[in-house]
Design a protein around this nucleic acid. Structure first.
Length: 278
DNA sequence: ACCTAAACCTGGGCGC
DNA sequence: TGCGCCCAGGTTTAGG
C-alpha cells in the first residue's frame, strides 16, 4: 500500500473534499471488508457528518458526528476516489459512499473505495476507549513526534534486522517497504544489519534519511508504482525518484554497482552490496 | 524473543 | 494468444 506519504496525500485531499459532507447511503459488492459488518456500519454511519479526517500510520480516520470513527485501511491496493455520482465507473470499486453537503445546495459526491486485492477494510469504532487502544498500538510518527532521541532508543532496543524495525508499525508509524529500502540506501546501511549494532552516528544519519525520503514522497504526492492513486485518480510521482526500491539489476546511483534483491522478513529488499556492505 | 510460511485476494508482467 | 510462474506498497496468525 500506500505508506505514510501516500496515505497522508490522500488524507489531505479527502479532508479538503469531504469535510462537512454527510453520508447519504452506502453500496458494496464486498461486505467482508466491513467491520464489524456492512449492516452495522451502514446503519450507524448514514446521516452522520464528516467533521475531520486524521491519519495514524497507514490508517485513515474519519471523525464523524456523534463521536463515531470510521477507519479505512488501504493495505496493498486500496484507492479512495472522489467522484461525481454521474462520473463513469472506476475499476475494482468494492464500495461506494454517497455524500451530501449538510449546508445545502452543493452537488452530491461519491467516495469510491476501490481495492483490486480486497485486503483493505472499513471499520466502525463507536467506543472512545477502543479508539484509544487502536492508536496505542502504533509508534510515534515521523515528521511529527518521532524525535532523534526516541528513534535512537527504538533502534538500540531491538536485535532484529534494522529494516524490520523500520517496518514495525508498533515501533514507528507509517514506514513501508519503498521508503524503508530507500532510507537505508541513503544512509548506506545494510538492511540486514542488527538494529542494536547500529552506531549512534549511523542512527543519526538514518533518522535524517527516513525523514528525507518521507518528505520527498510527500512532495511528489506519493509513489504510483502500481495501484496507488490520489483522490481524483492522478498518479503520484515518487516512483520516478526511486533510489533502490524495485531497481534490481540496475546501477547503484552512488557507486554504479548492481542493485541486488534479497528477501528479508518475507519482503523484497533492494540494496547496493557495495555501498551498503555493512 | 525470534523466524518463516501461510493466509487474506487479484492482477500485471514476463518467459516460453 | 495462451499458460504458468513470479511478483506485489500490508498485516495477522500459526507453528517451530
Amino acid at each position: 500500500m500506500p505508506e505514510l506519504p501516500e496515505v497522508e496525500t490522500i488524507r489531505r485531499q479527502l479532508e479538503q473534499e469531504l469535510a462537512g459532507y454527510s453520508f447519504k447511503g452506502i453500496q458494496t459488492s464486498w461486505e467482508k471488508s466491513f467491520r464489524p459488518s456492512f449492516r452495522v456500519v451502514s446503519t450507524a454511519v448514514v446521516g452522520k457528518k464528516i467533521e475531520s479526517i486524521d491519519r495514524q500510520a497507514k490508517l485513515l480516520i474519519f471523525n464523524l458526528s456523534s463521536g463515531l470513527n470510521l477507519l479505512f485501511h488501504l493495505k496493498l491496493t486500496g484507492q479512495m476516489l472522489v467522484r461525481k455520482p454521474s462520473d463513469p465507473s472506476d475499476a475494482h470499486v468494492r464500495s461506494s459512499f454517497r455524500l451530501r453537503n449538510s449546508k445545502g445546495n452543493l452537488k452530491e459526491k461519491e467516495l469510491r473505495f476501490a481495492d483490486a486485492r480486497k485486503f483493505g477494510f472499513v471499520k466502525l469504532v463507536t467506543d472512545q476507549k477502543e479508539m484509544e487502544q487502536i492508536l496505542k498500538g502504533y509508534g510515534p510518527e515521523p515528521l511529527k513526534d518521532l524525535t532523534l532521541e526516541k528513534f535512537q532508543k527504538i533502534i538500540s532496543s531491538s536485535a532484529r534486522p534494522i529494516k524490520l524495525v523500520l517496518l514495525d508499525q508498533a515501533k514507528i508509524s507509517g514506514i513501508g517497504n519503498i521508503y524503508a529500502n530507500d532510507a537505508l540506501w541513503l544512509a548506506a546501511i545494510n538492511p540486514s544489519k542488527t538494529s542494536n549494532k547500529i552506531t549512534e552516528a549511523e542512527g543519526k544519519k538514518l533518522y535524517k534519511t527516513v525523514n528525507e525520503v518521507l518528505r520527498k514522497g510527500l512532495k511528489y504526492g506519493g509513489a504510483s508504482d502500481q495501484w496507488y492513486r490520489q483522490v481524483h485518480g492522478e498518479e503520484g510521482k515518487y516512483q520516478e525518484h526511486f533510489l533502490v526500491y524495485g531497481q534490481k539489476g540496475k546501477k547503484c546511483p552512488r557507486c554504479g554497482s548492481e542493485i541486488k534483491r534479497i528477501v528479508l522478513g518475507g519482503r523484497g529488499t533492494f540494496f547496493c552490496p557495495v555501498c551498503q556492505a555493512s
